[in-house]
């Protein structure tokens, strides 16, 4: 997928395909906003303003069109290939992002709380996010867009295991 080998091991499991639908919906919403802004620009700002306006009148729509194309036609599928997760015997491991990627690994022994959240769009697609918190404000790992039942099971399992092996050292 990527030319260079990744710096760390990839998590094993991918997200359900309905996550693509959710990302696509998100992309369509942002694309609609972009298009609305560009149309407003073309309609409301007069042509004869001088300065850089004539240049912007064709440059901005082209840039917006490219942006919309990438956001709608590429990004949802690309993200589905990047987002991965894995819960092993003693750690939670995820990969997120698309152009910039982030791997996060948190050991079960350092988990403090586990949350399951369902956003509006997530509810439409039957998905949920598992958020795993540690003592560090930066050491939060989120497993995005799991099927709701699966998310609940993962959260319960992690919370129960964290209770058993909790390490007071933080």
């Amino acid at each position: 997928m990527t030319t260079a080998p990744s710096p760390v091991r990839e998590p094993a499991w991918s997200l359900p395909r309905s996550a693509i639908g959710l990302w696509l919906t998100e992309s369509l919403i942002t694309a609609a906003v972009t298009v609305a802004v560009v149309v407003a620009l073309l309609v409301w700002i007069p042509d004869d303003l001088g300065g850089p306006m004539p240049f912007l009148r064709w440059a901005v729509p082209i840039a917006a069109a490219l942006d919309v194309l990438v956001t709608v036609a590429v990004r949802p599928w690309f993200k589905h290939r990047v987002y991965r997760w894995e819960v092993t015997a003693d750690a939670v491991h995820t990969r997120t992002g698309w152009l910039s990627q982030t791997w996060t690994l948190v050991p079960v022994s350092r988990i403090q709380t586990v949350d399951v959240t369902r956003g509006l769009l997530q509810q439409v697609f039957g998905l949920a996010t598992v958020a795993v918190f540690t003592a560090s404000s930066q050491g939060t790992v989120r497993i995005w867009h799991l099927e709701h039942g699966m998310a609940q099971r993962v959260a319960d399992d992690l919370a129960a295991r964290a209770e058993r092996v909790r390490d007071q050292a933080t």
Binding site: T3, S100, T104, R110, S136, G139
Partner: peptide, 20 residues
């Protein structure tokens, strides 16, 4: 023992330069 998690970040440019 202080470490409670690792975060590895790699942007597209870092990937090309072999950095993270």
């Amino acid at each position: 023992r202080a470490v409670v998690g690792w975060q590895v970040k790699q942007s597209w440019f870092q990937r090309r330069a072999g950095l993270a």
